[in-house]
Design a protein around this nucleic acid. Structure first.
Length: 421
DNA sequence: TCTGGGGTCCTAGGACCC
DNA sequence: TCTGGGGTCCTAGGACCC
């Protein structure tokens, strides 16, 4: 691995991670939740998983990604709260704003965490720990939220140390001390080492990060490929290639847009299934138009009752951002691949291979497409005013849409309230 | 315990081309 | 004649993250 020029200098990277973000935002809306066991993600008897748990709930063993029903058994007194993505996005922007005051190089890594390159900000903000404490305080006063901050010479060390600093703490790993800091931690603490990799490593007698030094690099790369090779460097705290090595704040455009839906009860009703595909296609198309992307590849995701999951993709000759074209493709894939009569648990629509402009198309096609674009722009506008379910594709996809409206009369214009999700 | 929804990246095989 | 090698695109699946 050859370091890129700007990485030849030691960097000061902050990883800022919001504490129990979704729960904390809900507490700001409803202070009576404070200090109580709270589970965000849905109701106790719903099909779904925990998005976030308060520290009081975590004491009962509740953690994110756990089925809601399991959480309810572990912690019967927990308060279950539906998620509010709009609220989280709003607070995420506030967080972003606070961070922007501390460094021009800010990169939101997800809705509730960010990397800052603080190299060269000492004259403005002082040494790393001082700057971090200011940031920590400023975050609290400006957003009302707690965060934890990890400081290191690499993204990896910053990320791992923010985890160790939780909750509500700051931790600075002094350059040169990386390997010592990481050695006693479980291998699972290394970002990218999940359940599967952990099991493989345990089978080799490797439980702690420090144990990794017992294997030589050729063995790691033989067993685990490219990623295995990077692992040795990570044990020493190096960013070691890939995304981790990239400059903080280098703008990365989205690579895909998708929506999926899990039914509360599995269904084998073809018209209901196709109605869902209409809705998902509309959601994907809308986001493509918002972000001004055109997608060449459209993918269907289909999960059966027994959880077996398949994906089927089709790549178009010319890219699209039109609901109708997305739906046409996804319906064809669905009809070709659905085992008729077998109950379906989940459907998904996924768009990728983006271009910012569609290929040149012939004039006749162009006119037809332009009319669709105009119609969809009008529909997007109506949805902004009246909510997602107020408008559906007028023709071509009739069956599904009517059915959906009737299923959910409360969401018709005039009656609906602002959507949460 | 019965498993969401939104993403990213990697691997591997086949088609196709030179 | 029984056989290459590299490059790119596409598809399917899976690990992982929040």
């Amino acid at each position: 691995m050859v370091a890129t020029p700007q990485l030849a200098f030691p960097r000061t990277i902050f990883h800022v991670d919001m504490d129990a973000f979704f729960v904390s935002v809900e507490e700001l809306y409803d202070p009576s939740l404070r200090g109580k066991p709270v589970v965000v993600g849905g109701q106790r008897d719903e099909r779904g998983v925990v998005s976030a748990a308060s520290y009081a709930a975590r004491k009962f063993g509740v953690h994110s990604a756990m089925p809601l029903r399991t959480a309810a058994k572990l912690c019967p007194n927990a308060i279950f709260v539906d998620g509010h993505p709009d609220r989280y996005r709003e607070f995420s922007e506030k967080v972003h704003t606070v961070l922007g005051a501390f460094s021009p190089q800010v990169e939101m890594a997800s809705i509730d965490e960010a990397y800052l390159d603080m190299s060269g900000t000492e004259r403005l903000h002082g040494p790393p720990l001082k700057a971090a404490h200011h940031l920590h305080q400023r975050m609290k006063t400006d957003t009302g939220l707690n965060c934890s901050i990890g400081i290191g010479a690499s993204r990896l060390v910053a990320k791992v140390s923010s985890g160790q600093a939780k909750p509500n703490g700051v931790l600075f790993i002094v350059p040169g001390e990386e390997a010592k800091f990481l050695a006693p931690l479980d291998v699972r603490e290394i970002p990218g080492v999940g359940k599967v990799m952990e099991t493989h490593l345990h089978a080799l007698g490797i439980k702690k990060v420090g144990d990794l030094s017992r294997l030589d690099e050729s063995e790691l790369s033989d067993r685990f490929g490219k990623w295995g090779l990077a692992l040795a460097g990570k044990a020493r705290g190096e960013d070691a290639g890939g995304w981790f090595d990239s400059e903080v704040g280098a703008n990365v455009d989205a690579k895909s847009i998708s929506h999926e839906h899990t039914y509360n009860e599995d269904t084998a009703d073809a018209s209901q299934l196709e109605a869902t595909l209409v809705r998902l296609s509309e959601m994907v198309g809308r986001r493509l138009r918002e972000s001004q992307f055109h997608a060449r590849t459209i993918q269907l995701k289909l999960r059966y009752k027994d959880f077996t999951t398949l994906t089927r993709a089709h790549t178009l000759a010319s890219p699209t951002q039109l609901d109708t074209e997305i739906f046409e493709q996804v319906r064809a894939l669905f009809r070709k691949n659905w085992k008729n009569g077998v109950p379906v648990r989940l459907l998904g629509v996924h768009a990728s291979s983006f271009t910012s402009r569609p290929d040149q198309i012939n004039l006749l096609e162009g006119n037809r497409q332009q009319r669709w674009k105009d119609a969809l722009a009008a529909a997007d506008h109506l949805r902004d005013r009246f909510g997602e379910s107020s408008v559906g594709l007028a023709s071509g996809i009739r069956a599904g849409f009517r059915e959906r409206v009737h299923e959910n009369p409360a969401s018709l214009p005039g009656k609906n309230k602002p959507r949460n999700s």
